[in-house]
């Protein structure tokens, strides 16, 4: 492992100023939440920040109390501190009562031990689990200039929104958060900004090296969930290549605002199939004002994969995703 400096700030402002100063001094910086994935990258010398190599300074955020915990907001929504552990997110009754898909997504991550340590911000911001990036290839995600999966092994890669990088976004909780129109609160040297999912996540066509807009000195401080009515039913379904401790081959977060048997509006966001949490608006719109039947769910599934552009070895993901959406919609509708 490369030698690094560990810093333990006690406030977000302090963390950001450490980062700013270090970067100003020509040193590479990375923020650590739970560190479950980060330290592995550091040990394997895989660049966490594209092109920066192993970090010179690790800023350990765990001592920042203001970033930990779930709180109710005045508007009836919730604020989930970035350092809140995935276990705490899934166990929080405010989360599970109104934002069930988020709780289900959180509990689907990795293993219990990792959920106890891993944080929600870390889960949203973790680097891709592409086997090229994780095996030390100098791909876009490591700061290079190509995506090896295009002409290589792309079984697990993107069928939507790919190019020039074809990674899939690795977060399970992100699709669920996006399904509830979460706001990502970010702090950096230039102050604070509150970003929608559209603003926070970036497609490779806009920036092939990063998955989100966080600058090197920016921290995801918290995630705000707008108020959700008691009529919203939601759920998260994740397909995995084994029963636990792996990322999604495909996932679907579905939130349905119900009026009796009629769906007023729907959110459907996919994970594991695109470089960002992938909202399928055409499919969502098919549900608005409708009674959810098996036939409708099947049509929604078909609509969800319209425009999919599979690679040579991941064509299977198209029918799989179609059926995943169909079944998740039906399951959530009850």
């Amino acid at each position: 492992m490369k030698t690094f400096t560990n810093r333990n700030p006690e406030s977000v402002g302090h963390a950001v100023s450490i980062a700013r100063d270090a970067i100003g001094g020509g040193r590479s910086v990375v923020f650590a939440g739970g560190g479950t994935d980060l330290l592995q990258l550091v040990k394997e010398r895989i660049p966490n920040r594209p092109g920066s190599g192993a970090p010179d300074v690790i800023i350990n955020l765990k001592g920042i109390a203001e970033m930990n915990g779930v709180s109710r907001r005045n508007d009836g929504g919730l604020a989930i501190g970035g350092l809140t552990s995935l276990s705490a997110v899934s166990a929080n009754t405010d989360v599970s009562a109104r934002y069930n898909a988020v709780a289900e997504a959180a509990v689907s991550v990795a293993t219990l031990q990792m959920r106890n340590v891993g944080t929600i911000a870390g889960n949203v911001c973790q680097r891709p689990w592409c086997w090229y990036y994780r095996n030390g290839f100098d791909c876009f995600k490591a700061g290079g200039n190509q995506c090896y999966s295009v002409s290589g092994e792309n079984q697990l890669h993107a069928i939507f929104g790919g190019g020039p990088s074809f990674i899939v976004h690795p977060s399970d909780v992100a699709p669920a958060l996006v399904a509830f129109d979460a706001i990502f609160r970010v702090a950096g040297s230039n102050g604070e900004r509150r970003l929608s999912a559209d603003e926070f996540f970036v497609l490779p066509r806009d920036d092939a090296r990063h998955e989100n807009v966080l600058a090197d000195d920016e921290v995801l401080v918290s995630i705000e969930l707008p108020a959700a009515s008691g009529n919203v039913r939601s759920g998260f379904r994740k397909l995995m290549d084994r029963a636990t401790w792996t990322h999604a081959v495909g996932s679907a977060a579905v939130a349905l605002d119900m009026d009796g048997d009629t769906c007023r509006s729907a959110s459907i966001v996919l994970g594991g199939v695109a470089p960002i949490p992938w909202r399928v608006e055409a499919a969502e719109q098919m549900l608005a004002g409708q009674t959810i039947t098996a036939e409708l769910a099947e049509a929604v599934g078909r609509a969800a994969v319209e425009g999919a552009q599979p690679l040579a070895k991941n064509r299977y993901k198209v029918p799989m995703t179609q059926r995943l959406v169909e079944r998740t919609v039906l399951a959530v509708a009850g």
Binding site: W131, Y132, N135, Y148, G152, E153
Partner: peptide, 13 residues
């Protein structure tokens, strides 16, 4: 243990 056949590198380590 899949390999990237273009580069000869193993991918499933």
């Amino acid at each position: 243990v899949l390999y990237d056949t273009n580069t000869g590198h193993p991918l499933m380590t």
